[in-house]
Design a protein around this nucleic acid. Structure first.
Lengths: 153, 153
DNA sequence: TTATTCTTGATATTAAATATCAATATTGTA
DNA sequence: TACAATATTGATATTTAATATCAAGAATAA
């Protein structure tokens, strides 16, 4: 099995567990949305609207509200994270691993997004939280600026 | 002069310079909003609505749209920063110093916000940006979790 | 199969952000 | 000071994303 496939399977299990724990039901729509999201949007940052438009191609009967609610469910269950890059639209991203946190550099000119991870930042963060006796659930770090191409001019 | 008053004066100069550079006009409304914002909201995170309601007390003729536009102007001119803590409302905060960046820990239970600054994180950030040849304009870091009081239960 | 409970899709509602526009204020210049 | 040019204001309308509503339909457990 490829690493990607394995990852997807792990997320599937997490999601199924969540469904079971919360006494929710598993449905065809949720399956479809899960597959679309994890097959095509790993490492991407998709809006509800975008995912809905995409899914509509092959599954015209799935409604916007279902996509919206399902992405929220993905987030609640811990298999997706919600991002907000300042354009007023929530974006969702499949979570790659339980432990690895990564962050984003966003070009304010062209919108390009570069991901990065940095162990040292993570450990500083946790130290700060510990000092304040804060029980960390998650965190986000965003750097706004100009990418190499846009800062040339 | 108190440090607070000095800070306010510096921001005023920055704002006036911006106004001049962009060929905008200085108005009584902008003065009023500037004073209210810098006198009463240093270290706070105020929404447009909140600031508008506050200002209305003593200046009932100032409209919501003006407060909204003026806060945007403060942000553009670099004397205020916009924050978004996930409740769907933009919040504005007077900038304390040109150089010091601080960040936020937000309690997801009670909404309490703890500010912190960390030199090491700043330097890591700049290093990462440098590696990617990113020209940093600003950045934000938010930690979500439970404050000591809320994590007791 | 049935009863229960959850989900779905269409649509309506809400709320924040932003656009519009006529009336008014500010600014530079004579 | 008066004038012309330009920006601002306040009220209101519009847009848009997020969310609520609800009847009909689907999943689940007994």
């Amino acid at each position: 099995m490829t690493p990607v496939a394995k990852r997807k399977m792990e997320r599937r299990k997490t999601f199924n567990d969540y469904i079971a724990k919360k006494q929710l039901k598993s449905t065809k729509q949720r399956d479809t949305i899960f597959n679309e999201f994890f097959n095509n949007y790993m490492g991407k940052h998709v809006t509800v609207e975008e995912l809905y438009e995409d899914i509509k191609q092959n599954h015209p009967s799935i409604g916007f509200a279902t996509v919206y609610r399902t992405l929220k469910l993905f987030k609640e269950s811990g298999i997706a994270s919600e991002r907000n890059f300042g354009d007023g639209k929530a974006r969702y991203e499949p979570i790659r691993s339980e432990t690895e946190h990564h962050h984003h550099m966003i070009c304010t000119e062209c919108g390009q997004i570069v991901e990065f991870a940095n162990m040292q930042i993570e450990s500083c963060l946790n130290q700060v939280a510990k000092l304040n006796e804060f029980d960390v659930a998650n965190h986000k770090l965003e750097i706004y600026g100009k990418c190499p191409r846009c800062s040339e001019g």
